[in-house]
Simulated scan of single mutants.
Amino acid sequence: MNLNRLILLFAALGCFTNCRAQETGKQLLTLQKEIALPNVKGRIDHIDINLKDQIAYIAALGNNTLEVVDLKNGKVTGSITGLDEPQGVAYIPKHQELLIANGGTGECGFYNALTLKKTGSIKLADDADDVRYDAGEDKIYVGYGSGGIAIIDAASHKQVGDIILPAHPESFQLETKTNKLWVNLPGSGMIGMADLKQLKLTAKWSKLLPRANFPMAYDEAQHRIIVGYRVPAKLIVYDSETGKEIFSGPMVGDVDDLYWDAKSKQVYLSGGGGAVDIFKQVSDSDYKQVGHIKTRNGARTSLLVPELSLLLIAARESGDQKAALLIYKTGTL
């Protein structure tokens, strides 16, 4: 059985288990409102935010659009059309621009965030995917192709570096003060650590199981990498320096995004199994599941906004339910 079939099997089993699981910790995540995405069909991918104006940007991959959502007014205020499987999006506040990574063509397009007009473009290999913006260095990192992370200067719109990888990168995290980058490489069954000065991998941590490590978060204070696996559905916390496993526990199936909130010491995981799981760090090496809140089946893409105490979840159209951005208020124990 190949990896894709194995992922589907474990995702289905995870959904079956979690859909029947009793809700817990509902006080930790309260639905405030649903903002309709009336013209959006198909799969939805990554989300970013203009924090100052509370504008969310949603990569509607299956719809080939980027949706602009005003959180305060609760409505879609714009849309960028003609994209090709948009996956990653980053809002660049210094330049009031957006970068959209297109999975279909590999194009990374720059757009004015106010007018939504195109201002520049860089062509990478196919499958341009996850995006990170480093405000201190004014650089954008984009995972792409069969194994690479491009480094782009946000001011000049030019590629200034490239990290070659053994497989397509999924989620990755930066710590620029130590010049390190950690990246999930599910196609190779590993997590990689790269040196940002040398622009190459300097460490690799491999596992036979679990597999399909897609989302990742970084706990900078404790030097920990937090990874979500799909096969089987499991949360694992690693020492980011050594790769040593610190904690492991089951979680919601088909996870696509996870976040570490340093203030509450809570991990948020959104899964296509139809729920958000919340784990709280209760000791140096233990994380206790304190919440299992049902959302929608297939609603696996999210964005934690700790400054606003919000978790945004993108719910694709399913059956008689239209696509929507679900706005949750976060809490703590």
Results as ranks from 00 to 15, higher is better:
residue 70 D to R: 03
residue 287 Y to P: 06
residue 126 D to R: 15
residue 45 D to M: 07
residue 309 S to W: 05
residue 177 K to Y: 06
residue 58 I to F: 06
residue 282 V to C: 02
residue 239 D to N: 03
residue 154 A to K: 01
residue 328 Y to R: 05
residue 51 L to I: 13
residue 308 L to P: 01
residue 126 D to A: 15
residue 78 G to S: 08
residue 239 D to G: 00
residue 279 F to Q: 00
residue 290 V to C: 07
residue 276 V to D: 04
residue 8 L to D: 12
residue 158 K to E: 12
residue 302 S to F: 14
residue 184 N to W: 10
residue 23 E to D: 06
residue 331 G to N: 12
residue 290 V to Q: 01
residue 280 K to T: 02
residue 291 G to S: 08
residue 234 K to R: 11
residue 69 V to G: 05
residue 142 V to N: 08
residue 312 L to M: 03
residue 204 K to W: 03
residue 237 V to W: 03
residue 111 Y to V: 02
residue 84 D to S: 14
residue 159 Q to H: 07
residue 273 G to L: 00
residue 4 N to K: 10
residue 7 I to T: 07
residue 190 M to P: 09
residue 331 G to E: 08
residue 18 N to L: 02
residue 137 E to M: 07
residue 38 P to Y: 01
residue 107 E to M: 13
residue 253 G to N: 04
residue 107 E to A: 15
residue 175 E to Y: 13
residue 320 D to N: 14
residue 114 L to N: 13
residue 36 A to P: 13
residue 231 V to R: 06
residue 314 A to C: 00
residue 202 T to A: 10
residue 5 R to K: 11
residue 129 D to Q: 08
residue 242 T to N: 00
residue 148 G to K: 01
residue 211 R to Y: 12
residue 251 M to Y: 00
residue 219 D to V: 08
residue 61 L to W: 09
residue 178 T to D: 09
residue 317 E to A: 13
residue 254 D to M: 03
residue 48 D to Y: 10
residue 194 A to N: 12
residue 186 P to N: 08
residue 69 V to H: 02
